[in-house]
Nucleic acid binder design. Structure first.
Lengths: 167, 167
DNA sequence: ATAAAATTTGCAACATTATAACAGTTGCCA
DNA sequence: TGGCAACTGTTATAATGTTGCAAATTTTAT
């Protein structure tokens, strides 16, 4: 029985966010990318939620801050964060989630719990290899992979009532 | 050198559509599902385009038919077709594409050419196996897989100017 | 230090994608 | 033939995402 993956374990989430932000600042410094206040705040908001956040959720939080923001502000910040590998967009949810390992745009593989909404990003070399092999067999040149696996996370599966678990 | 996959080869597309429709009618008959005129027409429109069609593209075509349709008509037809495994929704494109092998909701794996927009559906047991293995390792119960691979199809890759190839 | 250039943000309007709610219609069958 | 279930039509609205331009800020070059 493997240890449970991070989002499924209790942990000090503030710390978790702080670390992610520190890592992001460091990554941007190295790449000479400008992690401006809005961008950093958006990243922070996304990290504070373990569940993927929609652009308009982010917008609402910014407004709650007193920040007079409009959709383009948010979408631009999100574009920047995506470009620098700090967040991923989850197409099947129209939502965004933080990325642990800012190493430019890598293949994101996600386990998405349909009950509690939590998301776990996997690094799965086997899957990537199988995908590349299949694509090569079709002479297809892969540029970007979207892999989103929906189902039940360990916690919700064992509470097999399918009731949502609060964050 | 493997034979090129269907959408990349020239072929009699009308025939291709007819076959798909015949197969769909047969599948619905077996499942006692009602492939009504609107539903069949939507499926036909989707098949006539090798590229995934947005709901509003379908709507426009229906209107061109003289059919007075509104969004819900299209979305309902698409829901039905999805439920019966006759079309897939491609989340990264907000668009729909026909499914070759109507066997209830199975895992759809797509190669999406970013240049010409054509889409090829793969059946890739290796990938599915790798995914299930990875999910199992996280004690995650898989229900639905969204796998969309964007890149360049053989034709566009060899025309390496990256200019869109007309349908 | 300072002007020019480039990047980022604010802002208003708009475009696209999707759903809700309810009324009408059709086919079935008891 | 009357009632039920499924399907369709219709209107309105919600949710998500983009364009274009102007103002502000930061960087770069002088």
């Amino acid at each position: 029985m493997p240890a449970r993956a991070l989002p499924y374990r209790p942990h000090n989430h503030d710390l978790c966010v702080d670390q992610a932000l520190a890592q992001a600042r460091e990554s941007c410094r190295r790449n000479e990318a400008r992690l401006t206040p809005v961008r950093e705040r958006v990243l922070e908001l996304i990290w504070q939620s373990h569940k993927p956040l929609g652009a308009y959720d982010v917008l609402a939080q910014l407004s709650a801050d007193g920040h007079k923001a409009a959709p383009p502000t948010v979408y631009r910040a999100l574009d920047f964060l995506q470009q620098h590998g700090l967040v991923h967009r989850i197409a099947s949810l129209n939502a965004f989630t933080g990325c642990d390992h800012p190493g430019q745009h890598h293949c994101g593989t996600f386990l998405i719990c349909r009950s509690c909404g939590n998301v776990l990003e996997l690094a799965a070399p086997n899957i990537t290899a199988a995908i590349n092999q299949a694509a090569t067999a079709e002479t297809f040149q892969v540029e970007q992979i979207t892999l989103e696996i929906a189902g039940l996370c360990p916690r919700c599966e064992s509470d097999s009532t399918d009731q949502p678990t609060p964050s």
